[in-house]
Design a protein around this nucleic acid. Sequence first.
DNA 1: GCGACAG
DNA 2: ATCTTGTCGC
Length: 231
Amino acid sequence: MNPLEYYKTIKPVEAKKVQQQLRQKISLEPFDGDPEYVAGADISFNRGSDMMHAAIIVLRLPDLQPVAHSLVSEETPFPYIPGLLAFRELPVLWKAWQQLQLKPDVLIMDGHGLAHPRRMGIATHFGIEIDWPTMGCAKNILTGSHDELAAKKGASVALMDGDEQVGLTLRSRTNVNPVYISPGHKVSFDDTYKIAMKTLTKYKLPRTTRLAHKWANRLRRGEAEEGYVEQ
DNA sequence: GCGACAG
DNA sequence: ATCTTGTCGC
């Protein structure tokens, strides 16, 4: 059964309490060995609609070739509230994860992990729920700030929330605005950097994110069907 | 009180 | 997040 069913009846005040409770379960233990498979998770939806379209796609390393994908559509009863994104998107992602047969070594999610006011971004929250290594990769900052960053691909600087590091600002492509990566669960700050670099090609966003986004959109437009497919 | 605010 | 054409810069 889906432990996230509970989140469908929850209200914002309770949601924040859940985040405070989950906080003590966060693990930043380094990832062991070299990952063989990485996956990307993303959601797509029409503005104004609560029907969420989720995609998780698994890529093989180091060639980044897709080997499997899981697509699921489901309605969400929770609105978008900054800081509470997980309660809107996790239920459908949970189904997509359960349906996925080939589990990756690490899952890269759209949005933040630790780089969250209560250190409980969607990547951390989901990692704890499924007890799996996860990390966040966001296009915008939710909380925190950082020093100037060199313009060359691979440059990085700590993302700080007060005097605490919550993530890394990463130049994923030369002369392009950076992305913000942070540990979700069961990975270290160093791991997030190494893993992110393995997934970058010629674009700003990791190939995992790009492909998950593409499939989520196909599902939304009816160009792809729900289900699990392995190559 | 005011401004900020993942997707 | 999504809706959209052209356009600036490496």
